[in-house]
Amino acid sequence: MALYSEKVMEHFRNPRNVGVIEDADGVGEVGNAKCGDIMKMYLKINDDEIIEDVKFETFGCGSAIASSSMATELIKGKPVSEAMKLTNAAVAEALDGLPDYKMHCSVLAEEAIKSALDDYYSKNGESANKSGE
């Protein structure tokens, strides 16, 4: 029996969208080193409010890296309004599930994306929650 689904292992071994966007329109960092997980997301958003590019950096376990990777895939090329609706359950489901005690990794991925969107909105003078709903 494997610890993780094949999908998790595949994203862990070949994470998508790894790296940094130097001139990002929104950056979000969540988690802390004490708990053993930190995720940082970088968003490039165009004039039509489409997420043109997204990159991540993660310090954490296999499922944290896989969750970050999957979350970036789910929002890349999507309108900001759609990205605001990303849920941790969607991330976990796209990974064919996570062990119960690893579900917090998908929560962290959702929070990292939202934190980067918050940053984008605050730079553009609007609250993320207002625009998201």
């Binding site: 994470p15 790894v18 790296g19 940094v20 930190i38 995720m39 940082k40 950096e57 993660t58 310090f59």
Partner: peptide, 12 residues
């Protein structure tokens, strides 16, 4: 270790 550090926000 080098690979994991290459995309670790703490390392950055």
């Amino acid at each position: 270790v080098e690979y994991l550090r290459s995309f670790s926000p703490i390392w950055r």
